[in-house]
Simulated assay, not measured.
Amino acid sequence: MKRRMLLGAAAALGLAAATGAYAADPTKVGFIYVGPVGDGGWTYEHNQGRLAVEEAFGDAVETVYQENVPEGADAERAMTQMALSGVDLIFTTSFGYMDPTIAVAEKFPNVKFEHATGYKRADNVSTYSARFYEGRAVQGTIAGHMTKSNKIGYIASFPIPEVIRGINSAYIHAKKVNPDVEMSVIWAYTWFDPAKEADAATALIEQGADVILQHTDSTAPQAAAEKAGGVITFGQASDMGEFAPLPRVSSIIDDWAPYYIARTKAVMDGTWESTDTWDGIGAGMVGIGEISDAVPAEVKAEALAMKDALADGSYHAFTGPLNKQDGSAWLAEGEVADDGTLAGMNFYVEGITGDIPQ
């Protein structure tokens, strides 16, 4: 089914690889990954996007990738080596790659760069991200209904706006359906480290949490919850469906394939321009994994209704009245958060305990 969908998307884009309309030399597209392609989460889905590019364009493209590239100086070296290898387009797929991407792009003005989840652009650097917080709203709704202890645990990676938005969105929507909900956050300071993620999940479970959400990339929290029993989880970035129907009851799925296909085509036909893209459920960049039968039918229906409302724009995940953690007013009744505030979010909403690390 997925293959047929990808081929259909390619046809809709008017791809000309099969007819020889593109140059004889293949367009070379590179990918820099922060984790392994087999992480089952974030990097896995980016690599699925890479494979979709290959399937869409066939011999008209050549893709290369480097996995497990740490953020920082190592990333700059990896990008430089990739640029020197003759690539036309490089996707750098982690927030911490932002400054290295800008630095390398300045040295290679004829190479196009696409940086995921960042905010710094240049003539040859675009940015792109997904509104993951929309998926967190759906997860929070399910979590609030299903917790029996009224304690939800959240494994956070790094204290950046993307992660803080997700924590806030999950909490807001859990609290809407269950006023007694409490949320505890453990900062793992990693995107992918199964041992640390398992330890964080175990610690939260020992504190009484019977729902675990995560913004880290491995399936270790799912395994820890399965071992503990009586705990539900949600897949992160990828479906993680091997743990369904329990403990994984649904998931956020990142679908990068259409974007990667479109941006590769833009390089191939000479229409590529520096842009900023931030899409969500409505555009298909954020998917909601199948809600398992472990979730009561009425809860599933409520979650899917929220998904639909987020998709068609009739509901926004950050709609007032909402206060900041210190009790100060943020959004009035019916007021919706603007993208600028969301993009730079550095505060918890009222009701979440603990401090955001600096």
Rank of each mutant, 00 (worst) to 15 (best):
K2C: 13
G8Q: 08
A16S: 09
A17I: 06
A17F: 07
T19F: 13
G20A: 04
A24N: 15
D25F: 12
T27Q: 05
V29Q: 14
F31H: 08
G35P: 07
W42F: 02
Y44H: 09
Y44S: 05
Y44G: 08
L51G: 02
A52C: 04
V53M: 11
F57N: 03
F57A: 06
V64G: 03
Y65P: 09
Q66K: 15
E67S: 10
V69D: 02
E71F: 05
A75S: 15
R77V: 13
R77Q: 15
S85F: 12
G86N: 04
G86C: 03
F95A: 01
T101M: 07
I102F: 06
A105Q: 01
K107F: 08
K112P: 00
K120N: 06
N124S: 08
A130N: 15
A137D: 14
A137K: 13
A137I: 13
Q139T: 12
T141M: 14
A143V: 06
N150I: 07
I152L: 14
Y154I: 11
S157Y: 07
E162R: 06
I164R: 06
Y171A: 10
H173N: 14
N178Y: 11
D180L: 15
I186V: 14
I186T: 11
W187P: 03
A188D: 15
Y189P: 13
T190Q: 07
F192M: 07
D193R: 05
D193W: 08
D193N: 10
A195H: 05
A195C: 04
A200F: 15
A200N: 15
E206K: 06
D210N: 12
L213R: 00
D217W: 09
S218R: 10
S218G: 15
P221L: 12
P221D: 11
A223S: 11
A228D: 15
G229T: 09
G229Y: 08
G230M: 08
I232S: 08
T233D: 02
G235F: 00
Q236L: 01
D239T: 06
D239W: 03
L246Q: 12
L246F: 05
D254R: 02
D254E: 11
Y259L: 03
I261V: 14
I261K: 01
A262N: 13
K265W: 09
M268H: 09
G270T: 09
G270I: 10
T271E: 13
D276W: 07
D276G: 09
G282V: 03
V286D: 00
V286P: 00
I288N: 00
E290F: 01
I291S: 01
I291T: 03
D293S: 10
A294K: 08
E302G: 03
E302A: 09
L304V: 13
A305H: 00
M306R: 12
K307M: 13
D308H: 06
D312G: 06
A317E: 11
F318C: 15
L322S: 14
L322I: 15
N323V: 04
E335R: 04
E335M: 09
G344P: 02
N346H: 14
F347E: 05
F347P: 00
G351S: 03
I352M: 10
G354T: 00
I356R: 05
P357W: 05
Q358F: 04
